[in-house]
Design a protein around this nucleic acid. Structure first.
Length: 198
DNA sequence: CATGGGATTGACT
DNA sequence: GTCAATCCCATGC
């Protein structure tokens, strides 16, 4: 069977872990810059690492929105982190975008980041929001037809092979292998040592 | 109303 | 390797 809809649209209809896998390779664009998603993590209300675990509050209500909404929140009082809300309205689930491979508007990213090296621009969830000028004001905005644009993989780009592993920086539900990286990509937040890949 | 704890990063030893 | 910055929000008194 086939599905003519674009890859990112199908990803938004999947359960959160599958969505996290499917979103690797898709693109995110904002403020004249864009990049290819190379690292994601899945979060779901059934597990305590997810903000939605506590239920609907002022902070978490965005997580319970319909698929395709941006959940942007402040981390460590400093950084804005971008998530893609998925699963049906009323279910708290989202995919954290942890790293991008810079695609367009790279010079603007350099200016916003104050760094030159390509691998310093979007290789972390706080870095990529700074590079793309994504702030808390974009929380709850749509990722289709909104200011932040989720798009399909660039034409002709090979589908990435995925590496999974435990999520980064959490203290609860650490056993779930819900982090997904494009294998061998140098723009992930924590590059693996040489030789670890086959 | 006070408190504690981060889905991180960058600077420093 | 260690560690501070910094602020929003959930929780508890």
């Amino acid at each position: 069977m086939s599905d003519a809809r674009e890859h990112h649209l199908r990803a938004l209809e999947l359960p959160v872990v599958e969505a996290a896998r499917a979103l690797v390779g898709c693109t995110i664009a904002h403020a004249d810059s864009s990049g290819v998603i190379v690292e994601t993590e899945a979060y779901h209300e059934i597990e305590p690492a997810c903000h939605a675990f506590v239920g609907i509050t002022q902070r978490t209500k965005t997580l319970f929105a319909p698929p395709g909404i941006a959940y942007v929140y402040r981390s460590y009082g400093i950084h804005a982190l971008l998530n893609v809300v998925v699963e049906r309205e009323g279910v708290g689930a989202a995919v954290l975008i942890r790293a991008l491979e810079p695609l367009t508007g790279v010079q603007r990213m350099r200016e916003r980041r104050g760094r030159e090296r390509l691998t310093d621009l979007c290789s972390g969830p706080g870095k990529l929001t700074q590079a793309l000028a994504i702030g808390l004001e974009l929380n709850a905005t749509p990722l289709l037809g909104g200011p932040v644009a989720l798009g399909p993989p660039p034409r002709g780009r090979e589908e990435p092979r995925l590496i999974d592993g435990p999520r980064i920086g959490i203290t609860r539900a650490v056993e779930l292998p819900w982090r997904f990286c494009a294998a061998g990509n140098r723009h992930v937040s924590r590059p693996w040592p040489p030789g670890l890949l086959d």
